[in-house]
Design a protein around this nucleic acid. Structure first.
Lengths: 160, 160
DNA sequence: GTAGTTTGGATGACACATCAACCAAATCGT
DNA sequence: ACGATTTGGTTGATGTGTCATCCAAACTAC
């Protein structure tokens, strides 16, 4: 390919490090799923629900909390409902809305998964760095994220 | 959910920063795809091919270069071939192998996409950090990646 | 040689995410 | 009141990635 302008070595080191770390994160998610039976997506939904009063939320609130596209939520809730982790009922105060509720099985699943999740995060990431390094890393990610946000105001993404 | 042991604030800041940055990266890939017509996966394959002699490589070499599962490569090459970006021919020296070649269209696609790719990386990531910060960031990712590699020697995906 | 294993690859089923299009209830403007 | 628009959600098509399984060619043995 035409290698007109590429990154210099310093830039490339940082960028590739980031990419590899991000790649690893997908693997991390799959391992967690293999251990707990919950994907990262499942986890995000269950955490939100489990923090809500009575373990129930309107779909739209859920969507705001985890910042998903609506079709993604619809389809994922379908799969989770068919697995018995959540239920979907019509919303009383808005006939176009949906109430999503944690089932007992869902609550048990998230409570079983949470410690393993934390353990994984610690073992794979936190333990690699000293407290100072953690701060530095957090600072740098913040710089980049702020830079992104400043550039592109349509950017937010989140989970976990 | 039971909040038995969670991360302290410092740990959480670093972890969440990482997650958000990794999430952003997916969005980055989609934007690039919208602009160039090439997904990150397409890009990885085309870059490898374009760097090879004659723009051709055996599938297995390609797989090693980008570290993919074999079924992923098979399926992605199918899609790319149907889009006219690559061709697949039997390998002369090993009857079970496959030779993958860049087509003219594929070469043009990667050459058109590369500058935009670099521009995006710069604009979204590199430009956010000073040279010193780039080094620091690269160092920290390396620490984490080394830690991961040291812990888990079974990380590679492939089995049969 | 010829049986057993490894290796390069293909295939089918499924999970996951996006996009575009659609629908009905809610809301808004007048 | 009533048409127009927004909003909450669904649906279907498509792209992408994983896993498990299968297959034939290639390398062992012996």
């Amino acid at each position: 390919m035409g290698d007109g302008d590429w990154l210099n070595e310093r830039e490339q080191r940082a960028w590739r490090g980031f990419i590899e770390l991000a790649n690893f994160r997908d693997q991390f998610g799959r391992e967690l799923q293999a251990e707990t039976g919950l994907s990262g997506a499942d986890y995000a939904i269950l955490v939100s629900l489990s923090e809500a009063a009575d373990g129930r939320m309107r779909a739209i609130e859920l969507r705001k909390a985890i910042n998903w596209e609506k079709s993604r939520l619809t389809q994922h809730l379908n799969r989770m409902a068919s697995r018995g982790l959540v239920t979907r009922e019509p919303c009383l105060t808005d006939n176009r809305g949906i109430q999503v509720s944690l089932t007992q099985a869902g609550r048990e699943a998230i409570e079983a998964a949470a410690p393993r999740h934390v353990g994984h995060v610690r073992r794979w990431f936190i333990d690699a760095l000293t407290p100072d390094q953690l701060d530095t890393f957090a600072d740098l990610t913040k710089v980049v994220l702020d830079h992104i946000a400043a550039q592109d105001h349509t950017a937010q993404a989140d989970s976990d």
